[in-house]
């Protein structure tokens, strides 16, 4: 474990033990909080989970009892090896999409079409299965590396006391959205709400994280925090809701040669 990580883990543990509350924060404190967020989610080893993505659309009849209709749903397995900057998203449901897979190695994202046995490079902004979920929603949290943080103020979100922080992408860094705002639970120090805007400041997506899982990672020798559910509202497209559910999270080490084209291809024979 690197010294930086030990310090962050200690800070984290102390905060949890003492129940320290975050108040109006200096630039350094804000920076540190974002680093804590990254660190809490960081998994030094491998990561696997089953992800269910549901896309709900607003009904045209505003008086309907259920305001939303389920338009599509996917189930996929997500595998990550953050140490090597690698990620796999492999679809298992619906049947028509089963076997389709994304393989990311550092900056390059490749998509596998099992019906053709062909691979294609995708763009960073590519959405997963055409839903409101994006590849970076399942990726390692790199907020402190990719963004500059600025404290906005203390607020209340439902029953939670939250710190609102604005993040701006660092120059030259390729990110899904250049402007972010986070509402961080002052007690638990987990993100509860995230808003993404375009460079012009136009609000594009709102993500809500109502539940987090905590589990112990042997390789990290510390807890890893994983969101259980993510509610994503597409604010440009009639509040289309994409709900992401993360199940069976597993921090066990994965096969050595898993992050390859051959492995993804082998899954859909």
């Amino acid at each position: 474990m690197k010294p930086k990580h030990i310090v962050l883990t200690m800070t984290l543990s102390l905060n949890a033990l003492l129940g320290t509350k975050v108040s109006a924060m200096s630039e350094d404190e804000t920076k540190k909080l974002i680093a804590i967020i990254d660190e809490k989610q960081r998994s030094t080893g491998d990561y696997a989970s089953i992800v269910v993505i549901e896309e709900w659309e607003k009904k045209k009849d505003l008086k309907a009892k259920d305001p939303y209709d389920l338009k599509k749903a996917f189930e996929a397995r997500v595998y990550r090896r953050d140490a090597d900057d690698q990620l796999i998203i492999l679809f298992s449901k619906p049947k028509a999409e089963a076997g389709k897979g994304y393989l990311r190695k550092e900056k390059t994202l490749l998509l596998y079409e099992p019906a053709l046995g062909k691979w294609e490079r995708q763009t960073e902004r590519a959405s997963i299965g055409g839903t409101g979920a994006r590849r970076d929603d399942f990726d390692e949290s790199r907020l402190s590396l990719e963004f500059t943080a600025k404290f906005v103020g203390d607020e209340k979100l439902g029953k939670y006391d939250v710190a609102r922080i604005k993040l701006t992408a660092k120059p030259g860094v390729e990110v899904g959205s250049p402007l972010l705002e986070l509402w961080i639970d002052k007690n638990g120090q987990n993100i509860l709400k995230r808003e993404e805007s375009s460079l012009s400041g136009k609000l594009m997506r709102r993500l809500l994280y109502p539940a987090w899982d905590k589990m112990f990672s042997k390789s990290k020798n510390a807890d890893v925090y994983v969101p259980k559910e993510i509610y994503t509202y597409d604010l440009l497209e009639d509040e289309k809701l994409t709900k992401v559910k993360l199940q069976n999270v597993n921090l066990d080490s994965l096969e050595k040669n898993m992050f390859t084209k051959a492995w993804i291809e082998s899954q859909s024979r």
């Binding site: 696997a48 397995r77 595998y79 439902g158 939670y160 639970d185 007690n187 638990g188 120090q189 987990n190 509860l192 994280y209 109502p210 539940a211 987090w212 899982d213 905590k214 589990m215 112990f216 990672s217 042997k218 807890d223 925090y225 259980k228 069976n248 999270v249 597993n250 921090l251 066990d252 994965l254």
Partner: peptide, 17 residues
């Protein structure tokens, strides 16, 4: 929400991917 709904648990109990 924020308070982890599952307590710390060892990975061994998880299914093998």
């Amino acid at each position: 929400a924020s308070v982890p709904s599952v307590d710390t648990h060892p990975v061994e109990t998880k299914t093998d991917s």
